[in-house]
Design a protein around this nucleic acid. Structure first.
Lengths: 337, 337
DNA sequence: ACTTGGCACTCGGGAACACAGAGTGCCAGA
DNA sequence: TCTGGCACTCTGTGTTCCCGAGTGCCAAGT
């Protein structure tokens, strides 16, 4: 039985513990929040909450600390996202508005988020999957090598160097470029494989090996690269916090693109905020941390995700507010460009 | 008066302290290194070394620890760069050989260096200043915006979105593109400003405002961007080391591009290894750290720098060996492509 | 049936203290 | 110039002790 007062007690415990970083006892609770009951009553409630796994004591006869399950309940039912101050909103707007290209947008976003939350910010590059081909360029580098450049309508540029099977002259390259552009211009990247499939037929027979090589690189760059880039910032903010698990593991996880991918990727709902708390986290090195993730994108399409990572003991309402706000502003910026 | 034996004592102190991380005393020295003299003699030498500022004791009647000045002497006169094992060399070669483009080269390099030295690796992107224009591309994004892409012979791609003063049609863009390429193809980036200066004259009068806008962006991207990109990896390796100065400052410095630039930039001789030790370091947050930097580049041109950052108490011979080796291999890779 | 005050109990953390061990400086003798 | 001996000085560690915050439980009150 979890009645209203017990929930109020849990909320008070979470709030106090987050702000003081010390186990909170029944007396302190009664003093600082006016719950209208005596410490003894609170003790009884706390005993129940502990039995149900929402709080725990670090050692016998110390105050209580929220467990991961307790934070979960807090986030789901007891807190509401805290909106940013208007000063903060203005700061975000002006800071993001100055970006010159997509790299710059991502860079600014991640720094902004790190500074705003005083935690580690993580931003995934916008997927190119949902974007469209703006232009394809083939640039000869030497007799047997050329650079393949793909420009999308979101302003992203993908480049690859291609080793050619044999020497090709400029004309054949020019021809292929023209055909490629005619065929692919404006088409969504997800459709590219289909279009590419019957493209060789539109070329003279002697060009087909060349085309095959280039197209395979094109497809490869779509598959391999399309989601893998993630950047982070604010690692310095980890220095203050003390993790149950070593700081080293956290830093290692941050440098592993694969881990970060999974971290951001396994969120079910893109349109809402996703919070994963402590042990809910799949990766063992991050068991002492929580993440707050939001999707962002231009228009209705979700392009990618961004979020922050911090100790389980974080101020969830504030962090969630910042993440949501930044995601929205970035979406705006991307939609406008 | 610093005679040979005192130098030998200093070397022994540095080596022992680096490997044990504990202040080293006269008796331990006499035991572990066969200097042929008694602890008492060593004590006398140590007293002299201390007076001259090469070593210090953390507190009265503890062992000695090298000072920054002591490390300096060690690096300059007492150590020689330790070559890598052939297994390590092979590992470097195969790992770097798999890179597909310039971003990949840099990424692999920085990770490799971090893993090899078990410290923080820092790699500056190759300057585009020394490279040549391979191709210039103008891609219309909308009526009044176009993307400007510059591809260099080193495989680097620079992109910028340009806001146009008024609506332009495809033909004018195509014309400008042709002129730009005819004029700039193959010319060194340092010459671009000169060539660009009298370029408007080769265009019809009505295109000049357009050209001016684009060219100003081109010049700007050369100046602004050309050196500023630096990446690092291996921050997790900082977690183990204990700095006199806070870990936080170091992490902050690593995320400040400007600080990193100065760190790598202020090395006098590009062809040799540069070591900056502790307080020799200009930035206050990095006073407890040392850096080892080498230049790299294809052929005779130095393109940029790379290095590692670690606690002052590092194994200089090994670190220097790794940095030098990686710099050489990267240079090879870049020269080959 | 819940709430409350009282009370005994438990631990963690800090202060005070002693002590062993490593290291030093200095001096007299080889 | 080197060496052995010796007295001295620290730090770090382990021990003990005690205070205080906090708990669990119980009996009485509403």
């Amino acid at each position: 039985m979890v009645d209203d007062r017990k929930l109020a007690v849990l909320r008070a415990i979470v709030e106090d513990y987050v702000s003081t970083n010390e186990p909170v006892g029944s007396k302190a609770l009664a003093d600082r929040h006016n719950l209208g009951v005596s410490p003894a009553t609170i003790r009884n409630d706390m005993a129940v909450l502990e039995e149900q796994g929402y709080i725990a004591q670090p050692h016998t006869s110390a105050g209580r600390v929220p467990t991961d399950k307790g934070y979960r309940l807090f986030v789901d039912r007891l807190s509401q996202v805290k909106p940013l101050s208007s000063a903060e909103k203005r700061a975000i707007e002006t800071f993001l508005a100055g970006a010159v290209d997509i790299d710059d947008v991502v860079m600014r976003t991640v720094r902004l988020l790190a500074q705003l939350t005083r935690q580690v910010a993580v931003v995934q590059y916008p997927t190119i999957t949902n974007s469209k081909v703006r232009h394809v360029e083939l640039v000869p580098l030497s007799e047997r090598r050329l650079m393949f450049v793909l420009i999308t309508n979101t302003g992203r540029v993908e480049q690859r160097v291609v080793e050619l099977p044999d020497v090709v002259d400029e004309n054949r390259v020019a021809h292929l470029r023209a055909v490629l552009n005619a065929c692919l211009d404006g088409c969504g990247l997800t459709n590219v494989p289909d279009l590419v499939a019957d493209l060789p037929e539109r070329l003279p027979a002697e060009d087909r090996p060349l085309a095959a090589t280039i197209l395979s690189v094109l497809l490869e760059s779509l598959v391999d690269r399309h989601d893998e880039k993630i950047v982070f910032a604010g690692a310095a903010n980890l220095a203050g916090a003390d993790f149950t698990v070593g700081l080293r593991d956290v830093l290692e996880a941050l440098e592993e693109q694969v881990v970060l991918m999974r971290l951001l990727g396994e969120t079910s709902d893109l349109s809402a905020l996703t919070v994963r708390i402590g042990s809910e986290n799949p990766y063992t090195g991050l068991q002492g941390t929580s993440i707050v993730v939001a999707g962002y994108g231009s228009g209705d399409k979700q392009l990618a995700r961004l979020g922050v990572l911090g100790p389980t003991r974080m101020d969830y309402p504030v962090t969630m507010g910042a993440v949501r706000a930044v995601a929205r502003y970035v979406s705006q910026i991307l939609a406008a460009s």
